[in-house]
């Protein structure tokens, strides 16, 4: 998405290598890292100073080296409900993901495995989607959740689960069809089945589809 609008980014990451890497990727895609900080209090201050288009933050940061970044992101969203935040985590923690999504009214928020940055184009897309108000959930989170025993989900076929996982990442029907090498019509049929099996009435609104996944994430 090289044609996307340039974003002003505040970046929070305590590892110097990682910070440089993230800055390089964001810059390569035409965005501007207005400030890169290394701990949670500095992140809050930087947001007040710069009023960025998006915050990209690591979970584990000083001062406590636990989940300061996540706490800071949630706190920032309380103060600035429209501020898009993308949280990067070293590990997939469904608990953290659920907490983040639950506290941000399910918009303009993302939770990704930190390693995803190495697929630079996908990562840049993700940043952009979140900045535009979308939701990005790491496929690993979905994989974990789909592994759980939940009766409505047990009714889904493996293919329907795959489709649901892709839906959760905000992909369009066309993108899902491409990813699974099936026809868009087949995807549409799968989605109708999923929504029916999850007791959600079919709806044309793409955003509602993601909400279906979110309902499931929060439960």
């Amino acid at each position: 998405m090289s044609g996307a609008r340039p974003l002003r980014v505040v970046l929070a990451e305590d590892g110097a290598l990682m910070r440089d890497g993230l800055t390089a990727v964001l810059t390569r895609f035409g965005h501007q890292v207005v400030q890169a900080v290394g701990d949670a209090p500095a992140l809050a201050a930087a947001v007040e100073t710069h009023r960025p288009d998006i915050v990209v933050t690591d979970v584990r940061m000083p001062p406590t080296q636990t989940d300061d970044g996540l706490r800071a992101a949630i706190a920032l969203r309380e103060r600035h409900p429209d501020l898009p935040v993308l949280v990067l985590s070293q590990y997939i923690e469904t608990a953290s993901a659920g907490e983040l999504l639950g506290s941000t009214d399910a918009r303009a928020v993302g939770y990704l495995l930190k390693d995803r940055v190495i697929d630079v184009t996908d990562f840049a897309d993700a940043v952009h989607k979140v900045a535009e108000g979308g939701i990005i959930i790491d496929p690993e989170v979905i994989r974990h959740l789909l592994g759980r025993r939940r009766d409505p989900l047990e009714r889904l076929t493996p293919r329907e689960r795959e489709v649901l996982a892709l839906m959760a990442q905000g992909h369009s029907n066309t993108a899902i069809a491409q990813a699974l090498t099936v026809s868009p019509a087949a995807v549409g049929k799968h989605i109708n089945n999923i929504l029916a099996k999850l007791d959600l009435p079919p709806d044309a609104d793409v955003h509602r589809r993601v909400l279906a996944v979110l309902t499931f994430l929060r439960s």
Binding site: L17, G21, A24, V25, R28, R60, Q90, V117, I118, V120
Partner: peptide, 24 residues
């Protein structure tokens, strides 16, 4: 765990990111 996370893992991500950018 901390040392691997702060050391090897960060470095590997940096390398892979550079490779990803180079590919572009």
């Amino acid at each position: 765990e901390r040392d691997l996370h702060d050391g090897a893992q960060q470095r590997l991500v940096a390398i892979a990111t550079s490779l990803g950018l180079a590919l572009l």
